[in-house]
Simulated scan of single mutants.
Amino acid sequence: MKRRSPAVRPKQSRRAGHGAVTLSDVATAAGVAPITVSRALNTPDTVSEALRERIGAAVAALGYVPNRMAGALASARTRVVPVIVPSLSNVVFVEVIAGIQETVEAAGYQMLLGSTDYDLAREAALVATLLGWAPPGVLLAGLRHLPRTVELLKTAAVPVVEFMEYGPRCIDMNVGLSHVRAGAAMAAHLRACGYRRLGFVGARMRDDYRARQRYDGMNRHCIAAGDTTVTLFETLSCEAANDSDQEVGWCALPEVLAAQPRIEALFFANDEMAVGAMLRARRDGIAVPDRVAIAGFNGLPVSGLMTPGLTTITSPRRAIGQRAGAMLLARINGDLSQRLRIDVGFTLEPRAST
């Protein structure tokens, strides 16, 4: 009787009490050397597709779980990459995370996600904790951190990529866009449309400093023009910890118009707030853009579905994640030739709301 392959009947091929399935067991089942299995699991691109499939079938059949800590002890590094963002519920960061994930997983690494809720002290605590996993590198959102965070990352001596914004100073590597220039671009657009009394509407801007940078860019542009004013609307009575951005925008519109009846155009900190304001305008019979023009930021799909269409600035979020992941992997692999700072830019999309 022909003997069945151990890759087909893995559980029965191991005697009770012999412990977990090992990498050598997988190699035997797949008919390859252990080093080939290691390469297939850790650096898939170095192994042919046929071998990856055969080894993958053996891994699945045997129920093999790689011992990442064993590899870490041997190399002093795990294959887990921490990714720290301000929010896991905001679709903007979800898309960036997706770009990072597809890039690092293709190279045999896994993400370990952390959320700061826009709290820099929490970010410092997360960095301290996640560095304890001996990661080969770290990805984190933004360029503004507490001194302790910067010190921890520099002392760890691992590659670091800061993403979402582009600026003159970074810990190691940086990929993102200039939020100051984005604010200036929106101001230029609104002025070109003929508006001279502008407003910027934001919430939690003390924490969401990138929104503050957009306001700063908008304000500087208008000051330089000399014929346009910008009013910052930051503290909204409707804002609560559990309010969605759409709810904040919904509440903000009548408050802004009551506080500044002559306002002509409003640039909201993000598309969701702008959508909330537009929905409120429709309910209350406030003509957009005839009574007040409305614009947003991020380029979410919903912006193009509004009536009228919402003017917005689109950031290449998934591409930012992909570039950040690729930069980190290149450095991990010893490639020192890459650019350290990448400005991915943005696209202003004028629509009927302005």
Score class of each variant (00 low, 15 high):
residue 157 A to P: 04
residue 286 I to E: 04
residue 72 A to N: 07
residue 20 A to Y: 02
residue 29 A to S: 06
residue 27 A to L: 00
residue 124 A to G: 10
residue 201 V to C: 14
residue 146 L to T: 15
residue 10 P to M: 06
residue 297 F to C: 12
residue 340 L to S: 12
residue 344 V to Q: 12
residue 185 A to G: 08
residue 14 R to M: 11
residue 102 E to I: 08
residue 32 V to M: 02
residue 275 V to Q: 06
residue 312 T to I: 08
residue 73 L to C: 01
residue 339 R to F: 11
residue 347 T to R: 10
residue 322 Q to I: 14
residue 2 K to I: 15
residue 84 I to G: 09
residue 92 V to L: 14
residue 170 C to R: 14
residue 352 A to M: 05
residue 181 R to M: 11
residue 201 V to N: 09
residue 47 V to C: 07
residue 32 V to R: 05
residue 272 E to P: 05
residue 313 I to L: 13
residue 213 Q to E: 15
residue 206 R to A: 14
residue 267 F to M: 10
residue 180 V to G: 08
residue 52 R to G: 05
residue 323 R to C: 13
residue 36 T to I: 01
residue 241 A to Y: 08
residue 62 L to G: 14
residue 128 A to L: 00
residue 24 S to R: 15
residue 336 L to W: 11
residue 169 R to D: 13
residue 153 L to N: 00
residue 22 T to D: 04
residue 262 R to K: 13
residue 59 V to S: 04
residue 279 L to N: 07
residue 111 M to A: 07
residue 130 L to F: 08
residue 38 S to N: 10
residue 84 I to T: 07
residue 257 L to K: 02
residue 304 G to A: 15
residue 300 L to N: 12
residue 127 V to I: 09
residue 269 A to Y: 04
residue 5 S to Y: 03
residue 71 G to D: 04
residue 206 R to E: 13
residue 309 G to W: 03
residue 185 A to E: 04
residue 96 V to A: 10
residue 340 L to Q: 15
residue 229 T to N: 11
residue 312 T to Q: 03
residue 284 D to K: 05
residue 336 L to V: 13
residue 94 V to H: 11
residue 309 G to Y: 01
residue 129 T to A: 13
residue 154 K to A: 08
residue 107 A to T: 09
residue 236 L to K: 07
residue 83 V to F: 03
residue 331 R to Y: 06
residue 300 L to K: 09
residue 182 A to L: 06
residue 97 I to E: 02
residue 177 L to Y: 01
residue 260 Q to S: 13
residue 219 N to T: 14
residue 138 V to Y: 03
residue 68 R to Y: 14
residue 48 S to V: 08
residue 175 V to T: 05
residue 349 E to R: 14
residue 336 L to A: 15
residue 353 S to Y: 04
residue 56 G to F: 01
residue 229 T to C: 12
residue 31 G to R: 01
residue 172 D to H: 00
residue 44 P to T: 01
residue 316 P to Y: 07
residue 48 S to A: 11
residue 22 T to Q: 00
residue 138 V to C: 00
residue 245 D to M: 12
residue 27 A to F: 03
residue 174 N to K: 00
residue 199 G to Q: 01
residue 260 Q to C: 13
residue 29 A to Q: 00
residue 54 R to W: 09
